[in-house]
Design a protein around this nucleic acid. Structure first.
Lengths: 243, 243
DNA sequence: CGAACAGTTGAGGCGCGTCAAACTTGGTGG
DNA sequence: CCACCAAGTTTGACGCGCCTCAACTGTTCG
């Protein structure tokens, strides 16, 4: 319980009571290791288990018959995979590991005590979903209306902002385990054009790369390029009181 | 309460107790009329009120400094505008009326009794948010990886599927109050190309148009074109029991 | 009747895709 | 510790889908 990823992430947004922490810790009792590229769940299968991400990056994606692929979401440590499918009978998307990962599976019904015993945790989970929602809207804006150059700046900002929730000190850069094909499929581009555009961004001294490490050199200019402002905090004023 | 839009929509997914219905009806006590094109809320403003849509279509959108615009969401009768902003301090997007509309404003805190008194309604609202989330993922796939022709087929299917939730008998077509510029801004295209592509879709006898009414002629082929399958039902098996 | 707005149509251009061939990197086994 | 291979990245030539600009055609409503 002391090293629960969920508690670590959720605790950033609001004070958690001991009871709440216990409810969350139950979700991480089990633990399973996954290899890089391993499929965690296939689209069309019933959603029986959800997973807390303990370590590693995962992604959900959608394939078209002719091979086109769209990456939909990245899951980081502290996320619940896939909270968004809980309301559906069948999984809509494939989910696979971008890196080796450790996941904590729990049955869908495992959320029930949380909903019935802690209105405050419920509101928090609700807020997390809503926040994710806001992130999806940002991506729609990016894919729909930004140029490739702008989209890449946006993605790097989004990733670094998300990493800041669970990782400390990324000012000197962070490891980016996504391939350029992954990045292309996240943003509606091709790997070739991602490569060319990343080089331009680096030449413009907005970022610096070595291997798969990326460092953002000029945060302000990056933000201006894609008109992206992250808002990390959530409004907890409407939350029911803790018990 | 008898003509509550919320109850009408939510009741399609699960049985509502009388107590639940009362909780929902409170949200629609107030009522206000809006003109076509009227701004309901500006980005950057604090989110104090949410709205139940009683009639009309609204949209949320994001503007870039140079005038580019991305429509993010369409709100139909029975929706809550903008449930997704509840977790944030400031509104992220502008919201305006596509048609004349009647909205029921209620303060953000108005949801509190619902969260604290009815775990079942909470789970339902949560599911609605999650379902909306799934719809956003579909749009990301469409904008990121589908051609203009495929995107338009997708959008028409999505709209007709959403309308089926509150309107009966759209088999003989439905009114589409969006301009082609709106449609373009929803899908990351331009009004000119939407016009040309819509004509192609009509020439291919997938749809038929007159004025702003649209009728889908060949549902199966439409679905095949964009590989889109709607899933209307939600899984309520994990819901806490009603009181 | 005319202004304002939405839709249509055509000509030409550009951003990003496609294809293909080098080059770099990191992991693996001898 | 080096040699090797597979996977990922880079680079260049060329093409296409969608954009831009612009003129024209309804259509609605004072």
């Amino acid at each position: 319980m002391t090293n629960s990823c969920l508690i670590a992430k959720l605790g950033r947004f609001t004070e958690l009571s001991e009871a709440d922490k216990r409810l969350l810790a139950i979700l991480e009792e089990d633990e399973r290791e996954y290899r890089k590229d391993q499929i965690v769940r296939r689209a069309g299968r019933p959603v029986e288990y959800l997973f807390v991400v303990k370590s590693g990056w995962l992604t959900s994606f959608s394939m078209l018959e002719d091979g086109r692929r769209q990456l939909l979401r990245i899951f980081y440590p502290g996320d619940i995979v896939d909270l968004s499918e809980i309301a559906l009978h069948q999984a809509q998307h494939d989910i696979k590991c971008v890196t080796a990962a450790v996941l904590c599976p729990f049955p869908k019904a495992g959320l029930e005590p949380l909903f019935s015993q802690s209105p405050r945790l419920t509101a928090l989970l609700f807020s997390m979903t809503v926040k994710e929602n806001a992130a999806l809207l940002d991506r729609i804006r990016a894919i729909g209306r930004l140029s490739a150059y702008e989209r890449l700046c946006y993605l790097l900002l989004e990733i670094s902002s998300r990493l800041r929730l669970t990782v400390n000190g990324i000012e000197d850069g962070f490891r980016l385990p996504l391939t350029q094909s992954d990045i292309a499929d996240l943003l509606g581009l091709t790997n070739v054009y991602v490569s060319k555009t990343m080089s331009r961004i680096e030449r413009d001294r907005l970022i610096q790369r070595q291997g798969n490490r990326v460092q953002i050199l000029d945060l302000k200019r990056m933000r201006d390029v894609c008109e992206y402002s992250e808002n990390a905090t959530i409004d907890t004023s409407w939350f029911p009181l803790g018990d």
